[in-house]
Nucleic acid binder design. Structure first.
Lengths: 342, 342
DNA sequence: TTGTAAGCGTTATCAA
DNA sequence: TTGATAACGCTTACAA
């Protein structure tokens, strides 16, 4: 804790606290001499204004929070987050805002939201969507949702998950695959895929739409669904489950590149010849995807752009401008060579 | 801003502010009935305690800051940071602390430090080392340095940069390379490599030690030094400079994997046959390194572990325990195939 | 140009 | 079991 306060400076300089405050925030309102003197004394005493006290007074913290759906370690194991934060960071830097990461506290979003000393929130792929929205509204600071169902009254940024998912599944089907395992991102609460919400639901819907075009669906036999954390390790473990089953798919379609990459690694380690014996497709187009062997066919989404846009929207809200705009960014199929013809 | 305050609750419940505070933080000190009543009213009014006011009163923010040396966008373009934050996040999660990212504000570390409402700092690879330390000390909160010269009075975590750098350079030299370009991480202030400090200096010293063993040094002719931001783009641009020069090296030794990978990409795009025509080595062993083509020979450093350790040290400091321990973690040469025999 | 004093919303001390 | 009341350190009308 900073020991020396403005009162101390004021005492030593023989002025009031106001003067000290002015010297720092509004020097033009003081005579040059006194301002200089105050600053000198402050410097000498090593005075640092207490940021909490300042926030208390101004009602502003100068920070925005990013509400992430999983604990920090897990969420940083997916390269999507850094890309997103790169975009957020760009806007924050310009606006001189700092960035607070707010993961669920002991599983509770409410506590994360209530504890964070921030001026606003960016929410990323919320799981307990509706209840979190209630808490957020209650908290009384502006927020912008990313990768959640558009909500009335709050700006949001989404990508065309359904379209992207549909196009990648079409690509896989067009290559002749019929025995497919879809690896979904494991959501906090277990739910049947028909009950997915937000991004998860949109992607599943995209897959289903493409499957439907050839009269297929997720039937648990030819086309199956697995869930996995969005980490490389999660992908590996999903693959282990796949390899254990008697029925082997010819293609894996993962909802996240990092899952696909983990699964590929595990497959390679087990001697599967990719993509000849098994095809893979992902979602996100993280940098790794282009480098993977075989290079991963996936859906590109503008992660960094999403961050920028979301942060910009929040900024506008903080400044009182802007109403609840909703962006829908395109998602684009990126064909590489991890999906082989069957 | 949360609209309803404890005073409001107190009024409505016909009790004092103290009682309301107790109902939340110390219910056992109230009769069950009143506590219940207060909580009910608070719930009904959608009361959320103001975290800033709480911090003001308790003197604790419940957050720690990570001081990064560059603006957020740049620093997130290097996969090293997420790995580090994964480790930090693990400890934070356990200790219920949130994580604040504190990049330089308008180039000023001092402002970053003074503005951040946190209970302590982790500093990552400081550039203006000494002056920042002064500010940090003045700020009066505990801190732990990572990738900086050990400082008396503050715990620190480092890896054996010199040893790691030495071993990778030895490896390159043993492969017969004599025309080498070293790509250093660009530091904020330009300085001759003899004036580097901290991690940069240690790595350079490692390279120099290995070179010295065969009677070579950084002479600007056979062995040259370039600087680049630690991003893929930075690596690409460095490579462009390399290709422009009349004298082409047979090997590139980069201080960061992401630089090496960017350089490799650029080289490949320009039709250079890797590693036959040009060898590459990096530092860090980020996940990408193993996937790169050719797989990148590099020095593995325990990024995540560093984060854990640093966070743990800070935690202990926050709890008043522990003195200024300094960890030195091993760095290990990882031979893949990006360095070809000459 | 400078000072007084009233907040800001909690927590914590000490009485009652 | 509860309540006044004083911090906490700063900003900011409003006065002088």
């Amino acid at each position: 804790m900073p020991r020396v306060t403005i009162s101390e400076i004021a005492r030593r300089a023989g002025v009031s606290k106001t003067a000290v405050s002015f010297a720092f925030n509004n020097p033009s309102r003081l005579s040059e001499a006194t301002a200089k003197n105050i600053l000198a004394i402050a410097e000498e005493l090593g005075f640092v204004p207490n940021p909490v006290a300042r926030s208390m007074s101004t009602g502003r913290t100068g920070a925005i929070g990013v509400l992430v759906p999983q604990p920090l370690p897990e969420v940083f194991r997916n390269p999507f987050l850094p890309a997103f934060l790169e975009g957020v960071g760009e806007i924050c830097t310009k606006a001189r805002l700092s960035l607070m990461l707010a993961p669920p506290i002991e599983g509770s979003m409410r506590r994360a939201i209530d504890n964070a000393a921030v001026d606003g929130f960016l929410t990323l792929g919320l799981e307990e969507f509706k209840s979190t929205m209630v808490v957020l509204r209650q908290r009384g600071v502006p927020y912008v949702t990313v990768d959640s169902d558009p909500i009335e009254g709050a700006p949001g940024v989404n990508v065309d998950d359904e379209g992207g998912a549909c196009s990648v599944m079409r690509h896989v089907l067009a290559a002749g695959h019929r025995e497919i395992v879809i690896i979904a991102i494991r959501s906090g609460k277990q739910a049947h895929f028909r009950e997915y919400v937000g991004t998860l639901r949109n992607r599943i819907n995209g897959y289903l739409a493409a499957l439907d075009e050839i009269g297929a669906t997720i039937d648990g036999r030819k086309v199956r669904l697995l869930e996995s954390p969005a980490t490389e390790q999660g992908g590996r473990e999903a693959m282990i489950r796949v390899m254990k089953a008697t029925r082997k798919p010819t293609a894996i379609v993962a909802m996240s590149d990092i899952i696909a990459i983990g699964a590929m690694r595990e497959a390679i380690d087990r001697g599967v010849d990719l993509p000849k014996d098994m095809s893979f497709a992902g979602f996100d187009d993280v940098p790794l995807a282009a480098w993977a062997r075989p290079p991963l066919t996936t859906v590109a989404q503008p992660a960094c752009r999403k961050g920028q846009l979301a942060a910009e929207l929040l900024l506008q809200r903080l400044e009182g401008k802007s109403d609840a705009v909703h962006y829908l960014l395109p998602a684009e199929l990126v064909v590489r060579s991890s999906v082989a013809a069957r």
